[in-house]
Structure formats: structure tokens, C-alpha cells
Design a protein around this nucleic acid. Structure first.
Length: 292
DNA sequence: GGTAGACCTGGACGC
DNA sequence: GCGTCCAGGTCTACC
């Protein structure tokens, strides 16, 4: 079935889809017209594929099966979260217009970062990005969805991202050996256990009014989530007060601001400090490699 | 608060 | 084919 959603002013779907690497990870995919595709399990138990396309000033949603009215409401809310449809970037854009290295992103109407339907999924994805090559991150994610996700009825080779209840049924060794997650397996297992048992409610953090520092502490209480992962997750939660410093950040910031000298994470952070609550976005969308 | 070493996987390289 | 080295963040122990 097909239905439409209104897009906020200055919304660019391809810019969200390509805002970071999530779209390369299963069960996300980019459609040929640079829209978003995803396979989801709704709370009713329905497993379906949906695609979001731009159509004039609206978003057209195509689904692989007919939805009940309540399912349509749930999917609408989920898409709204995934694409940050309710966020307003006008304040950021007016600041960014004063910085030549941010002009391109303002023109592209970038700024929104693609989110998973649940914070559990985003935390797990982030864990898979740490201390490994991107290629291996994609492989681990593919193994997780294929082995533990629910198959799409119309195409059983495609699967949803596994939910915490399903992963909590596995044991560490299964995750370690079958998904080749290495030392990350106990982190994924513990997270799934805590979320499925109700001990940890990650989803409330989506609407938390906690100060960012407190939210960061909360995220860093999760085994496997350190300063980089926490900053990454804060960005996904719409808090941009921290820069996710990884080896890539050390490299590009050094080349841009320190003449290629070896620098420390503290130097990366101090470089963007002046941008205050927007510093994470400034780092993320900085024009590191301007066209010659 | 800062630092060193271990944790894993898989690719690159030398023999 | 085998062994070694390396890259990638986080955790833990120690100072």
C-alpha cells in the first residue's frame, strides 16, 4: 500500500539517507532514487518492507503489504523518528552560514542523521562499529540480521534487525562464533539481556529531558560504550554537544587544523568547543575534502 | 586523571 | 601455507 507524509521545510531525503553509514547496514538500503528502504517488524508482529521516496514536497511511503490503521500510525511515527522529521535546524543553519566550510551542507539542507527505529538497535550498531574495519562491521551486522532477524514473508532471504528478546535467547559463544563478533559478543549479550528483562529502558532516552552530560553517563554505563560510541549515540538522539573522536577524526582534524602533526583527542575536542551545542554536527558535516 | 596492555578479527606481508 | 604485524575503541589494572 501507499500513503504520504508531509516533509518539514528544507528537508532533503537523500541527505538523511547518506548522512552516515547506517544505510549500508542490513536491513537498511538505499533505493535507486536515493530514498530509504528498511525491513521492519511492527508491534502487531507484522513483518514488512517499506520505502520512503520524495514526491514533490511530500514523502511517499510504499509498503510490501496492507497495514491496519494502527499499524499505519505506528509506521508513521517510526519513520518520523528515523528521519528526524520533527527536528528544527534553522538555528544551526544560521550559524553554519557564517562558516565557509559548512556552506555546502547548508545548501544541501543536511544536518539530520539517519536513525534506527529503536535506540537498542542504534546502540548495537554502534558497538559493531568500534575497534574494527567498516567492512567487518557490515559483515557482523549482516550475520546478526540473517541469523536472528525475522524473515520477510514475501522474500524470506531478507530479515528484520533482531530484537533484544531474540538475542537474549542466544548465548555469548553463539554470537561470538556464528557472527564472529569477538570480544563484543558479551557486550551484545549483556545489552540484550538487560533490555529484554526490562532492567534497562533505552527507548525512554529518546525523549529524555536529562542534561546531555547525564545522558552521556547513562549511555557510558552500557558495557562496550566508551566516549566515541557515546558521542555517536548522542548525535543520534539529537544532542550534538560532543564530537565522536576516532582515528578518522584524529587524522582529518590534524590535517585541517594542525598541519598534519600527531594530535590528541583533547585537541580535537577543543577545536570544536566554540560551536557549543552544535559542535558534533559541525564536525560531522565539515567540508573535509573540498573539490579542487 | 593518565597510561599500558589485553581484547578479537581478518587483511597484508614476508618467508 | 604459516607466522607475524597491524588497524580499529573500550575495559581494566595500575600508578
Amino acid at each position: 500500500m501507499t500513503f504520504t507524509l508531509s516533509a518539514p521545510p528544507a528537508f532533503n531525503l537523500p541527505a538523511v539517507v547518506r548522512s552516515h553509514g547506517w544505510c549500508q547496514m542490513t536491513p537498511f538500503y538505499e533505493t535507486p532514487d536515493h530514498g530509504l528502504g528498511y525491513i521492519i517488524r511492527l508491534s502487531t508482529g507484522s513483518v514488512l518492507r517499506f520505502e520512503v521516496h520524495t514526491e514533490d514536497d511530500t514523502l511517499r511511503i510504499d509498503t510490501s503489504c496492507r497495514l491496519s490503521p494502527t499499524e499505519q500510525v505506528e509506521l508513521t511515527q517510526t519513520i518520523g523518528w528515523m528521519l528526524s522529521l520533527d527536528q528544527d535546524f534553522s538555528e544551526f543553519y544560521s550559524l553554519a552560514r557564517q562558516e565557509p566550510k559548512l556552506l555546502k551542507m547548508v545548501e544541501r539542507r543536511a544536518g539530520r542523521v539517519l536513525r534506527s527505529p529503536t535506540l537498542f538497535e542504534d546502540v548495537l550498531r554502534t558497538l559493531l562499529t568500534t575497534n574494527t574495519l567498516w567492512k567487518h562491521t557490515l559483515r557482523m551486522c549482516r550475520e546478526l540480521t540473517t541469523r536472528y532477524g525475522e524473515p520477510l514473508p514475501s522474500d524470506p532471504t531478507q530479515h528484520t534487525f533482531p530484537n533484544p528478546q531474540r538475542l537474549a535467547q542466544e548465548d555469548e559463544s553463539g554470537l561470538r562464533e556464528q557472527c564472529r563478533m569477538g570480544y563484543r559478543a558479551p557486550y551484545v549479550y549483556e545489552l540484550s539481556q538487560r533490555v529484554s528483562s526490562g532492567e534497562l529502558d533505552l527507548e525512554v532516552l529518546k525523549t529524555s529531558s536529562l542534561p546531555t552530560l547525564e545522558l552521556r553517563k547513562e549511555l557510558m554505563s552500557i558495557k562496550g560504550v566508551g566516549s566515541y560510541a557515546a558521542a555517536n549515540l548522542l548525535m543520534l538522539l539529537g544532542r550534538y554537544d560532543y564530537v565522536p573522536v576516532d582515528t578518522w577524526a584524529l587524522k582529518v582534524v590534524s590535517n585541517e587544523f594542525f598541519g598534519g602533526q600527531k594530535i590528541t583527542p583533547k585537541q580535537v575536542l577543543s577545536t570544536f568547543e566554540k560551536w557549543g551545542k552544535w559542535q558534533g554536527l559541525v564536525y560531522w558535516f565539515w567540508d573535509w575534502f573540498p573539490a579542487q
